[in-house]
């Protein structure tokens, strides 16, 4: 008789811990052919609330880290991912129905993307900040700072590369993230959270909720202690246009920085450019007199 599998229920990742959903709900995750793979926690609005609290708590420390240190930690995430390649490849293969080679390719790109972003930590400020030659005896310079707590609706289709490509640019600049993973393809996100937990990333810097972006999005969008929101995960959902507009309206309550939903999920393999990072930074200008 064949061995009976030990079926696992994956949990949420909040504040560095792996709690079940406060609601107690979970949902069945299937592979691309509809075959049961595992149970995932179905995050509720209260999980969103808890994740925002955890994120806010982590923000001060994370944003105060040196850029070099954040860079090191992102690179560490890449190292640990490299270590767990087979698990990621399997998760991507199952989730996306990709061939082994394609899954391998996506994992390669995801790891490379992390490495790429890790290098930006101590360079973005040099590229987009500047000294301003004001017409007076003043030192004046402008530098980017993180916006704060960022809600991320992760892409629905690209379960790993898309996820990494939206989370890394948020945290590399010193923000903290509350991420809602792909609903149908959450397993790479779950594995990613396990990597984060073992990669020197302080608890609360990234919080990953498995669940429905259409249900959780409005709570994130209208949350008054969230400073920005990436609506990328709206693309491809039913009523995507209307949902995006609703979320933008919610985001207006405290004037969140909004990275809008694209019409369709982008090709994640192309050069991301700076905008995924600059979407969630604030430019601070400091003046000081020059005198003796």
């Amino acid at each position: 008789m064949a061995r009976v599998d030990v079926r696992k229920t994956y949990k949420l990742y909040i504040g560095g811990a792996f709690p079940r959903s406060e609601s107690g709900h979970s949902y069945e995750v299937t592979d691309s052919k509809g075959k049961f793979v595992a149970n995932a926690s179905l995050a509720s609005r209260k999980d969103v609330r808890d994740a925002v609290v955890a994120a806010r708590k982590a923000f001060g420390g994370w944003s105060a880290r040196t850029a070099y240190n954040r860079s090191q930690i992102l690179y560490r995430i890449a190292e640990v991912m490299e270590d767990r390649r087979p698990q990621f490849e399997e998760a991507v293969r199952q989730s996306e129905g990709a061939s082994a080679a394609a899954a391998r390719g996506q994992v390669d790109e995801a790891i490379d993307r992390l490495v790429w972003y890790s290098g930006w930590a101590d360079k973005l400020g040099q590229v987009i900040g500047n000294a301003n030659p004001v017409a007076g005896p003043f030192f004046n310079h402008t530098a980017p700072e993180p916006s704060g707590v960022i809600g991320v609706l992760a892409p629905q289709t690209s379960s790993l590369l898309g996820l990494v490509s939206t989370v890394a640019p948020v945290i590399v600049t010193g923000n903290v993230a509350v991420v809602v993973s792909s609903y149908a393809r959450p397993l790479p996100a779950v594995t990613f959270s396990e990597v984060l937990a073992t990669s020197d990333v302080p608890g609360g810097v990234v919080n990953i909720l498995t669940g429905d972006a259409a249900t959780l999005g409005p709570w994130l969008a209208s949350h008054m202690d969230v400073n920005g929101i990436d609506l990328g995960g709206v693309a491809g959902l039913p009523r995507a246009g209307e949902l995006a507009a609703e979320l933008e309206i919610g985001a207006a309550d405290n004037l969140k920085r909004v990275r809008r939903a694209p019409d369709a999920e982008p090709d994640w393999s192309t050069d991301p450019g700076l905008s995924p990072m600059t979407a969630f930074v604030e430019h601070k200008t400091v003046w000081h007199p020059i005198g003796v």
């Binding site: 987009i128 933008e248 920085r257 909004v258 990275r259 809008r260 939903a261 694209p262 450019g273 700076l274 905008s275 600059t278 979407a279 430019h283």
Partner: peptide
């Protein structure tokens, strides 16, 4: 022009 960001790209 920027890439879908409400507040401009930079």
């Amino acid at each position: 022009k920027s890439t879908g960001l409400k507040g401009g790209d930079l």
